[in-house]
């Protein structure tokens, strides 16, 4: 198996991803309270909301880290319920988590393939030998193609700058994703220049037929990248808008709750 993407943009009527009536409870806390959302093919969808609004919870449910208490996820019209991140990835959904699920003690190449190393012979499963050279070569190719400022696939990730690390994480998602890349505040810990590099990378994903869900607190970033923005507040989807400068204020008021339960589209 190689890292590969395929493009599927032939227009079917069903959205790529649809979440219906999602409810998520943690004991007494209701993190999601009846959310409906759709993600179209080739779209960059911004997921906005204040701290604790339920954004991370939503994407964790889509990417298999947690399971919805109620509701259903549909992928290309088919009901799916990924029970582990692995299952989600097999469905073509890659996630860059807020807390950066990189391995600092390993190289960029090892990070690229962590958990799904190329091995031989196949029948031996996880007792098989890792194909180190092939993995280094593949990851070097991806890093080269994406021009993310990381040149040595053997360099340990722990010694990289925040921007380089995030670039590795996004590049890994880009390389493996077949349908969707989810990014949870990918630039939160980065400087202006480093953010720009990562966002450049995100921007190019739709050209490869990959849809994006982008969680962000940065409105500039959302306006520059996203085709559509939805707003969460206290576990509910409270609004939707095209992120343009004219809509800026509307969106902000939705986030902070000055204008309850009114939707735009």
């Amino acid at each position: 198996m190689t890292i590969d993407n395929f493009t599927d943009t032939t227009g079917a009527a069903v959205p790529l991803l649809e979440v219906k009536d999602a409810v998520m409870r943690f004991g007494a806390v209701t993190a999601l309270n009846g959310v409906n959302l759709t993600l179209n093919r080739g779209e960059i969808l911004a997921l906005l909301g204040d701290n604790g609004a339920g954004k991370s919870t939503m994407i964790k449910c889509i990417s298999g880290v947690q399971q919805l208490s109620e509701g259903q996820i549909y992928l290309e019209g088919q009901p799916v319920s990924p029970r582990t991140p692995k299952e989600a990835r097999e469905l073509g959904i890659e996630t860059v988590y807020q807390d950066l699920a990189l391995f600092d003690n390993m190289s960029a190449a090892q990070n690229f393939f962590a958990g799904r190393e190329l091995t031989t012979p196949k029948w031996m499963g996880s007792a098989g030998f890792v194909r180190r050279k092939a993995m280094v070569k593949e990851s070097a190719k991806v890093l080269e193609r994406l021009q993310v400022g990381v040149h040595d696939p053997n360099g340990p990730v722990g010694l990289m700058s925040g921007g380089q690390r995030q670039a590795v994480a996004v590049a890994r998602a880009e390389a493996w994703a077949k349908r969707i890349v989810i990014l949870d505040e990918p630039t939160a810990a980065l400087g202006v220049r480093e953010s720009r590099n990562v966002l450049e990378l995100v921007k190019r994903l739709p050209q490869k037929g990959i849809s994006v869900i982008l969680i962000s607190h940065n409105m500039e970033e959302v306006m520059a990248l996203a085709d559509r923005a939805i707003v969460f507040r206290q576990g509910r989807l409270v609004g939707e808008a095209i992120p343009t400068p004219e809509n800026h204020e509307k969106i902000v008021s939705m986030i902070v709750g000055a204008d309850t339960l009114k939707t735009w589209s």
């Binding site: 880290v65 582990t84 991140p85 692995k86 990835r89 996630t95 988590y97 807390d99 699920a101 990189l102 391995f103 600092d104 003690n105 390993m106 090892q110 962590a114 958990g115 799904r116 190393e117 091995t119 499963g125 996880s126 007792a127 098989g128 030998f129 890792v130």
Partner: peptide, 20 residues
């Protein structure tokens, strides 16, 4: 592969879980 996973697990247990 399983031996390499020991490093992944030790470096970032939550990350290892999420990496399947």
């Amino acid at each position: 592969q399983a031996g390499r996973w020991l490093y992944a697990l030790g470096g970032n247990p939550e990350g290892a879980k999420r990496a399947g």
